[in-house]
Nucleic acid binder design. Structure first.
Length: 273
DNA sequence: AAGTCTGTCAACCGCGCGGCG
DNA sequence: GCGCCGCGCGGTTGACAGACT
């Protein structure tokens, strides 16, 4: 048994709104308000529309002070920061951006911002779906341009010569915020072949993949016990990095050494901000 | 010039939640 | 406590425009 439909589908118009419908709805709400009942509103306003459709049209397009058009770099930063913190809670993100709607932000994230952050040129077409970037410098400048982040916010991680199992930030002030590997594997798969990144936000990796460099980015967010990873080509993290859960209860981003003979020679650089 | 592909964005759909009787 | 109803949210779809072949 399904849920009863919210309106009589047969007698309801769907699809794009006409200017006449817009003005009817706007006029009615200006004069009477929504009345706290969207289901009854279309009938009262003389519209052959579903109440939900009216609500959506009003919230996303007709209500006063709606902002359309380009997002500012500041808005980009807010969206990214909140997304990294709370995930796809678009209504909450929208509440921090006056004049923007959750639908707007969701569309913007899915069509532009995500790609910007991952370094996919907007006009890239008909190319390998994997994310091959021209150079790490290009990635860096894209991130800087998009987010207006510059060193030392954008930190270069390099393998330490004396310890192939640990990558640290160049900036010693911030070291310890992000750890990749370490002397004491904090987790790990039962065979000890994985080590865990214990914290992270936006990561960009550059690998030696055969005879070419390969880069990809991922958003890693979490509080130490619950983790999420989004982005990157092919649905997020690519081998030899894997998302998984450890046997001590934590979920995280792991380096699976069984996928790669030598981590230190494969992973060239990792950026974090 | 025509056909095909891709990106964008408005709108729809289904579900969870809370209020109310 | 239970069921119904409406609201709000996030994910998905589809129309359209523009780029590309």
């Amino acid at each position: 048994m399904g849920r009863a439909p919210c309106c009589d589908k047969a007698n309801v118009k769907k699809g794009p709104w006409s200017p006449e419908e817009d003005s009817k709805l706007k006029e009615y709400i200006d004069k009477n308000g929504t009345g706290g009942n969207w289901i009854a509103l279309p009938h009262k306003a003389g519209l052959k529309r579903c109440g939900k459709s009216c609500r959506l049209r009003w919230l996303n397009y007709l209500r006063p002070n709606i902002k359309h058009g380009e997002f500012s770099p500041e808005e980009d930063r807010i969206i990214f920061t909140l997304f990294a913190t709370i995930g796809s809670r678009w209504s909450i993100i929208a509440s921090q951006l006056p004049g923007r709607t959750d639908n707007d932000i969701k569309n913007y994230w899915n069509t532009k911002l995500k790609k910007k952050l991952l370094g996919i040129p907007p006009t890239q077409r008909k190319q390998n779906q994997q994310l091959f970037l021209p150079s790490l410098q290009a990635t860096t400048s894209l991130l800087e341009e998009t987010l207006q982040i510059s060193p030392p916010d954008l930190l270069l991680l390099q393998p330490q010569a004396h310890n192939h199992h640990q990558y640290q930030m160049k900036d010693s002030v911030n070291s310890g915020v992000l750890m990749f590997g370490g002397h004491e594997p904090s987790c790990s798969s039962s065979d000890g072949s994985s080590t865990q990144i214990s914290y992270g936000k936006e990561l960009e990796f550059e690998f030696n993949a055969g005879d070419q460099n390969m880069s990809f980015g991922s958003y890693v967010y979490g509080d130490g016990s619950t983790w999420g990873v989004v982005g990157g080509g092919g649905g997020g993290v690519q081998p030899p990095l894997e998302v998984g859960s450890s046997n001590n209860g934590g979920n995280g981003l792991y380096w699976n050494e069984s996928n790669s003979a030598n981590r230190s020679s494969c992973l060239k650089n990792m950026y974090y901000y």
